[in-house]
């Protein structure tokens, strides 16, 4: 029996920011399997955000390959990478980054605006947003409320629903629990994993908090897979 193709695979990646005092990141080898839950631990400045940008295709590696769901991002044009990201990756931010002026439904459905295939997988977007909210414990009465009026806990749920809608095969979570207390962190992970398991998608979460390690299938230290350097000015 052959192992399934990895959902994420980085090989001999080298990237250097042009305008950021020569900050560079190098990753020799890194893979995430389908439906795997991976925690990537690293201190501030270790290159976590740069790695996420490389995986999302908002920046391109100068060397090496970044494969997401079997596609080498370097083979895609800028526009194709943007669309590919929208189709393939659900992103959860540190501060959840909802559009404060948009309604809960607007925020959840936003990725579908840029991902036609993902949109096709959702028969009735509004109903799907409502279903996700219900499963995440968010009252449907909040669907029309502006995101700015929600509590932090409610914003977490909306951010998870936004990442999950349309079943992207990979969820990237960028320190979504960093501003939460221990109880809230646990609640958030419970919510996210419940939906992730139900949808059968892979999760790669970036954090600097090792206490979360036992909740994941695999824990990787940033320093074990990547080297970051800042050239002296």
């Amino acid at each position: 029996m052959t192992a399934p193709d990895p959902i994420l695979q980085l090989g001999k990646v080298r990237f250097r920011w042009s305008g950021r005092a020569g900050f560079s990141v190098a990753v020799d080898q890194f893979t995430v399997k389908p439906q795997e839950k991976v925690l990537l631990l690293g201190e501030s400045g270790s290159g976590k955000s740069t790695l996420l940008s490389l995986i999302c295709g908002t920046v391109l590696a100068q060397e090496g390959t970044v494969n997401v769901a079997g596609t080498n991002l370097a083979t895609l044009s800028g526009g194709q990478r943007d669309r590919f990201r929208a189709e393939t990756i659900g992103v959860i931010f540190q501060q959840f980054n909802l559009l404060p002026f948009g309604s809960v439904t607007d925020n959840i459905l936003l990725p579908l605006q840029f991902a036609p295939q993902r949109r096709k997988r959702v028969d009735a977007p509004n109903e799907e947003a409502k279903r996700l909210c219900e499963q995440l414990g968010l009252p449907s009465s909040l669907l029309t409320e502006r995101a700015a009026t929600l509590s932090v806990g409610q914003q977490q749920r909306v951010a998870v629903a936004r990442a999950l809608i349309g079943d992207p095969p990979l969820i990237l979570a960028d320190e979504p629990t960093s501003s939460l207390d221990a109880g809230s962190q646990a609640n958030f992970l419970d919510l996210m994993f419940k939906q992730v398991d139900a949808n059968g998608v892979a999760v790669m979460m970036v954090s600097h908090d090792p206490r979360l390690a036992d909740r994941f299938d695999r824990v990787i230290e940033m320093k074990d897979i990547a080297r970051s350097e800042r050239e002296p000015a």
Binding site: G79, D82, N97, F114
Partner: peptide, 16 residues
């Protein structure tokens, strides 16, 4: 910039 970054993360092109 944050609003624009959200759009970008959701798949919006810079041209969008």
């Amino acid at each position: 910039r944050r609003e624009m970054a959200i759009y970008r993360a959701m798949g919006a092109k810079p041209s969008t």
